[in-house]
């Protein structure tokens, strides 16, 4: 199948061709009959110039439109996207029309990343605190032991 770029050029060229065909010499001469009667050769020459200039100017302008809009590049890119999606039967996602809702989806990957990061950090902190708690409990045990030893000394003196 023709590419989008080819299709674009083809339809534009076709319109131009048909327009040129419509503006035939016979039609031109028929409209400018009074001048044609006076100078038929000049009329032919003017018509030829008219056709030539019309085609050249329109082609130049269309080329400018294509360059300005980067149409060739965009058409190629779109053809590639269409090709990549050829096995996709379901309609693809489209903006809902409510930007704040659509923006939520765009934020989801960052939120999920942050969620994962927080889970990891929390796990590390819980582990650190577990070790700290073990040290604290050991310290409390030692203090209790020291208290008991002091109590035993006191009772002995008593």
């Amino acid at each position: 199948p023709p590419t989008r770029a080819q299709l674009f050029d083809t339809v534009v060229d076709t319109v131009l061709e048909k327009l040129v065909a419509a503006g035939s010499y016979e039609r031109f001469a028929s409209c400018y009959r009074c001048f044609y009667k006076l100078q038929p050769e000049v009329t032919k020459s003017i018509h030829e110039q008219f056709i030539f200039q019309l085609q050249a100017s329109i082609k130049e302008e269309i080329q400018e439109v294509k360059e300005e809009g980067k149409l060739e590049m965009l058409f190629d890119a779109l053809d590639r996207l269409v090709e990549e999606a050829k096995d996709q039967q379901e309609p693809a996602w489209r903006p809902s029309g409510t930007p704040e809702e659509d923006a939520l989806s765009a934020m989801v990957p960052y939120l999920l990343k942050h969620h994962s990061y927080l889970q990891r950090v929390l796990k590390e902190k819980v582990e650190d605190n577990k070790q700290l708690a073990e040290a604290v409990l050991a310290g409390r045990g030692r203090i209790k032991e020291l208290q008991q030893l002091i109590q035993a000394r006191r009772e002995a003196w008593q």
């Binding site: 996207l81 269409v82 999606a85 379901e90 309609p91 765009a106």
Partner: peptide, 11 residues
Amino acid sequence: PNVLLPEDKVH
């Protein structure tokens, strides 16, 4: 309708 633009893949 079945084509999704690359910048919208996240959706």
